[in-house]
Every structure is written in structure tokens, then in C-alpha cells.
Write a protein that binds this DNA or RNA. Structure first.
Length: 303
DNA sequence: CGGATTTGACCAAG
DNA sequence: CTTGGTCAAATCCG
């Protein structure tokens, strides 16, 4: 195997610490916001911070759980072959089956307990990936049903990515999306989808092309305008600028809201998760040139 | 006609 | 037993 169990543990420990530190920082920020509830100068709203904190702790707990479960499973499998669900099904006799083979396997699966997952909250459902809905379920004590999506390329490319989308009770305009597993089909959203809003309607949509840092206007979609965040200045940040080549693996958690998308403008911010950097960060501003092109080195990052 | 969605059934887990 | 996640036939839609 590529990495040993002990290596995985030490890798995950770093990530756990990182997640917990981030959660702590977000909590501090939240505390600051709660102390002055009428100020609106914060980069992140209290609600977004709460989501961020929750995500950090969820991720940390997931990593810890993965360690534990993986270790346990390693011990089990080393003692003998694991029982597959097909084995269980062979015991399940008596009742006549409608059809053999594929139908025989219906509902035969393991719950994704150890898959990496992360949750976002946004007022847009579209995230740039090709999803196919495969189910909807009423959830106990939830006002709105939960929708289940899988990657369109599940069968042709074996992509295991799924997501669950649920309208939020407190704010029905917003959707909570839980992504489970990363895309392995090549349909990786190499660059963020950026939704912009202008001060005056109509708002317009832009998308970063995959091979360049160029914003191209998208066909109008049925997104409601995203909220505009106030610019938040902070000293240039971190070691992130050393790793900008990893931009292709960034998964953007939130939509960017531009105060203006005119060339030359500094435009507002978003949050993002980088798989390769294994961290979350925020892009504070992006400067556009006349071709709606931006220079990565001019990004202002917040970690 | 083929791909996407709907929806009730099926199944695992607790 | 209940609940949530998935399957797949029926249906919709371009």
C-alpha cells in the first residue's frame, strides 16, 4: 500500500490540529461580532462564521473517526476476508426476488460514514458541476425535504461524488449543501464559478475559464443575486502566495459577490477550500484587467 | 428517443 | 421499529 497506517495518522493529526485552530479563530471572530451586533464591517457574517466553525469541528471529528474506523477495519481485515453485502444477501432467502443480478443488488450498499464530506451554505444551488438527482426524502423534524444528487459521470467514469441539498428552515432562500467525496471523473471544477452582482440590476454571471484566469460572462441562469460583502482589508497574509499553482484544485465554497465587475476594479470576496493545500482560505479581492483577466499574484488572501 | 427527474420501495443502521 | 440513503420503474421533457 502507498501509505502506512502510522503515516496516515500523522497526516491526519496535522489536519485535525489545523481544523481545530481554524475553528478556534472563527469562534473568536464570531465572539467579536456578537459583541457588536450592529456593526456590519465584518468580512464574514455571524451565520457564516457559525457554519465555518461547525465545518471545522465536523471535519476534525471526521478525521479522528476515520483514523479510528480505519484502524479497526485494518485489524479486522488482517484476520480474514471481510464479508461483503452480497454474502449477506445470500442468507436473505425465502422471499421471491423480482429479477436477478442488478435488481438483486438493490439497496445493497454500505453507508458512507468515512467519506470525506463538507458542508456549505449558499443561496445558489448551482455549483458548476454536473449533478443528477437520484432521490428526495422527507427528513424528520425538517420542514423541507432533502435532495440527493450524484455525479453525472458516476457510471461512465466511476465518479463517486455525491451531494445532499436541503433548504434551510431559518432562511428558505438559502440551501445547505453537503458534499460527500471528491470528484474523480475529471469533471473537477478547476476554477471557481463566480457569480457577480452589480449595484444596479440586472446582475450578471461570470465564470473563470479552466485554462486561464479569465472571467467570461456566462449565460444567464436563474440564480438570485448573491449578497454583497463589504471589503475587508488585512495585511497580506500567509504562505499561500507560494502555493498559488494549486489553484486548480481549489473548491470554492461560496460565490463571489462583486461590487462591480468592471475591469480594473477590486472586487469582493469568497471562501474556498483547497484540496492540495488542505486548508480553507478567503480571497479578499481580485483585480480585473480590461479583458476580465486577473493576476493570481494580486490576490489578497485571508486564512 | 435518450437523459433527467419523480417517487415508492428497499435496505442498513441504530 | 424508525430513519435516512439508495435504487429503479415510471414519467417528464427537450
Amino acid at each position: 500500500m502507498a501509505t502506512s497506517w502510522t503515516e496516515k495518522i500523522s497526516i491526519n493529526r496535522e489536519r485535525v490540529v489545523k481544523e481545530l485552530v481554524q475553528g478556534q479563530e472563527s469562534a473568536t471572530h464570531l465572539q467579536f461580532l456578537l459583541e457588536k451586533p450592529y456593526g456590519d464591517n465584518g468580512f464574514l457574517s455571524a451565520n457564516e462564521l457559525a457554519v465555518k466553525i461547525l465545518r471545522s469541528f465536523t471535519e476534525a471529528l471526521t478525521l479522528l473517526t476515520c483514523d479510528f474506523v480505519q484502524n479497526f477495519q485494518n485489524q479486522i481485515t488482517s484476520q480474514g476476508d471481510s464479508a461483503c453485502c452480497d454474502d449477506r444477501r445470500s442468507e436473505d432467502s425465502g422471499e421471491s426476488r423480482k429479477r436477478a443480478t442488478t435488481k438483486e443488488r438493490r439497496g445493497c450498499y454500505k453507508r458512507k460514514k468515512t467519506s470525506q464530506s463538507w458542508t456549505t451554505v449558499s443561496d445558489a444551488i448551482e455549483d458548476g458541476h454536473a449533478w443528477r438527482k437520484y432521490g428526495q426524502k422527507e427528513i424528520l423534524n425538517a420542514k423541507y425535504p432533502r435532495s440527493y444528487f450524484r455525479c453525472t459521470h458516476k457510471y461512465d467514469k466511476g465518479c463517486k461524488a455525491t451531494k445532499q441539498v436541503q433548504r434551510m428552515e431559518e432562511d428558505p432562500q438559502m440551501y445547505q449543501t453537503t458534499y460527500i467525496g471528491h470528484h474523480t471523473c475529471g469533471d473537477i471544477l478547476k476554477v471557481p464559478q463566480i457569480i457577480t452582482t452589480r449595484d444596479s440590476s440586472p446582475w450578471e454571471s461570470y465564470k473563470l475559464t479552466s485554462n486561464s484566469n479569465t472571467l467570461t460572462q456566462m449565460d444567464h441562469q436563474h440564480h438570485p443575486p448573491t449578497k454583497i460583502k463589504q471589503e475587508y482589508k488585512e495585511e497580506n497574509p500567509s504562505d499561500l502566495t507560494d502555493n498559488l499553482s494549486s489553484l486548480d484544485s481549489i473548491i470554492w465554497k461560496d460565490l463571489v459577490a462583486f461590487e462591480s465587475a468592471e475591469p480594473g476594479d477590486l472586487v469582493a470576496s469568497t471562501e474556498a477550500t483547497s484540496q492540495s493545500l488542505d486548508m480553507d482560505f478567503a480571497v479578499n479581492s481580485i483585480e480585473l484587467d480590461s479583458d476580465f483577466h486577473f493576476d493570481e499574484s494580486k490576490f489578497n488572501y485571508l486564512t
